[in-house]
């Protein structure tokens, strides 16, 4: 995003705002989707984050890229949503089973080996705690550099690297463990 367009956005130029939205909405949507793992929630979060970013545009100092800054705002929004979701889940827990998990495991079409591996990997990733899962998603889904990840998460570069290596170690181990009994059965 060039500085000129941003300056025009700050001044309230509707054309500039329109092109800012156009340029960033899809990546922002994918970002929220990857944190929330739910398209409808991701739509809301994208909306909320973008508007929050526009309102806070004066705080953007161009030390990081606009996208990185936008992601860091969206991360906060998504965390808020996750918190609410946890609260809702706690309230609903007594009466209802967890729908999402049920729907997942009742899918019988998991035949292809490649697909099976990839699904097992997704499950292993979703079991990581947040501080290890987020860097993995930002690196391997959003293809951010470690420097950009550090900016989005507000942690330093060394911490990003150590979280990523620990996550890779976990994921590698989990996958091997998941594969072992199946190989023995064949």
């Amino acid at each position: 995003m060039d500085a000129q367009t941003l300056a025009r956005c700050k001044a309230g130029d509707p054309q500039a705002i329109e092109s800012l939205v156009l340029e960033h909405k899809d990546r922002l949507f994918r970002f929220c989707l990857s944190i929330l793992d739910d398209p409808a929630d991701a739509e809301d979060a994208t909306q909320e984050s973008f508007i929050a970013a526009l309102k806070a545009l004066k705080n953007y100092r161009q030390e990081s890229s606009f996208q990185t800054w936008l992601f860091s705002i969206a991360l906060n929004t998504c965390r808020g949503q996750l918190r609410q979701r946890t609260r809702r889940a706690r309230l609903a827990a007594a009466s209802q089973p967890l729908h999402r998990q049920q729907a997942e495991s009742s899918n019988p079409e998991r035949a292809a080996i490649a697909h099976e591996h990839s699904h097992a990997m997704w499950q292993a990733i979703s079991r990581l705690d947040e501080k290890h899962r987020l860097p993995v998603i930002l690196r391997y889904y959003h293809e951010l550099s470690t420097q950009e990840i550090a900016e989005v998460l507000g942690i330093n570069l060394g911490t990003v690297h150590s979280r990523l290596s620990i996550a890779r170690q976990h994921l590698g181990a989990e996958l091997r463990q998941a594969n072992r009994p199946k190989r023995a059965a064949r």
Binding site: L28, P39, Y140
Partner: peptide
């Protein structure tokens, strides 16, 4: 890791109606 995440979410654009709402609100 890369392929499993892409298989999970694909590369979707924001749905068109949601995109329009965002434009309007922005």
């Amino acid at each position: 890791i890369t392929s499993s995440l892409h298989e999970r979410w694909g590369q979707p654009d924001m749905p068109a109606d949601a995109g329009r709402r965002l434009q309007e609100q922005a």
